[in-house]
Computed example of a mutant assay.
Amino acid sequence: MNRTVFPAPVRFSGMPLPRWWAVEDGRTNFAAVRPDSTDLARLIFLEFALVYSNDWFLLPCDLPAGTLASIRGLMVTDVFGERLWIEPAGESGDEAEGEPRGPRPWSMFSLNALGKTGDDAVDGPGPGLLLPSSVPKVAEGPVLEEVTLIRDEMANMVWGVERTVTLPHGEARRGTEAAAEVLAHRLRLHPPQPPAAPAAPEAYTAMSSVPENWIPFIPVHVPDQNRDIRLQRAAMPSVVGGGRLVRPRTSLLREGFDAGRQYFVNEEEVPQAGTKLTLAYNRTRWHDGRVALWLSARTHAGRGQASSGLAFDYLADTRPPGQPGQAQGG
């Protein structure tokens, strides 16, 4: 299929102007963008916007949904009437005769070997552009599970806080309420023994406790690496005692738990702001009227760090309320 189009320069808000003594749009402040050293996508965007944006042109090309398009090349006609045939990058056949074809260079919005496997597979991206079918609107149901991965710099670890859990009958409940109900039920079944009268007003405590909807992730070394780390799911001892450990209740944090497998999270997946994970049902209609229903998990940006209140090696006050030297509420 051949199409004739007119190229237009790329334009976006705040882009550098081609003239030296021109003032750009102040509504976009690129200086406020502060990417991390590993945020490659944002770094590539800034380099394009500040350095190479004036060198790019936009060619309109409308495609139907659900198609795989491949550009053979561009026939460019300049103002002098000369016509130049330009092939896609990496497709010009610059390889020497008899030499094996090398990997294609990196590109964006392309496919990896166009789904080929075996001896016909090509290392690197392919020249095709896949435009999958889509729907104009998707109805999202109530959140069934919500987990927040937050950093605790004081404890040097990451917590998976189960904000919303799904009960056995299918109803969603706040994680703090569900954990408190389960803990109260176990305390009724196994009431703690009354402590003996302490000889000292303060007792040494090795470690405090945290709410049972807080699942710890501890940093461990990546295999065969000395510096790289990843986050491994761990467990906290329950307040009830007896050697019981707190188990995650959401499927987002329970991955591989019942099978006895370890669960790891890449360290870069939990930034300083944290990460929020949600699980909910989605419903939509296809172009022929059919109803599609699926369960989806999504990631969102967190709201910053938090403290679990976990403390180690401290003295706990053992005196009952009301004795001298202890604060009372009024």
Rank of each mutant, 00 (worst) to 15 (best):
L167E: 12
A292R: 04
L252V: 04
A203T: 06
S53A: 15
N282L: 12
A113S: 15
A89S: 13
P248K: 00
A32M: 03
G102E: 05
P9Y: 01
W20V: 02
Q323F: 11
R261P: 12
Q326K: 08
T176F: 03
Q272P: 04
T278Y: 00
E24V: 08
S110Y: 13
A65C: 05
E97F: 09
F6G: 07
S307H: 11
G322K: 08
R42Q: 10
L129G: 03
R19G: 10
Y204H: 15
P136K: 11
E212D: 07
G304H: 03
D123Q: 10
R42K: 08
P201Q: 03
P321R: 15
G73H: 02
R244L: 12
Y281M: 15
P216D: 06
E95I: 14
W106A: 12
L129T: 11
W20E: 11
V10W: 00
E91K: 04
L167P: 03
A32I: 09
G98M: 11
I44Y: 12
G260P: 01
Y263C: 09
R244V: 03
G256S: 10
R101N: 13
V138R: 01
A113Q: 13
P191G: 02
V220C: 04
G98N: 02
G141T: 09
G90S: 04
F30I: 09
L50V: 12
V122G: 06
L315R: 12
R298E: 11
E212Q: 01
R249E: 01
G128S: 11
E162R: 00
L40Q: 14
L74R: 01
A197L: 04
G98I: 02
R247L: 15
F264R: 01
P136G: 13
V51N: 09
L279N: 13
P321E: 13
S133A: 15
V158L: 00
P127I: 02
P18K: 00
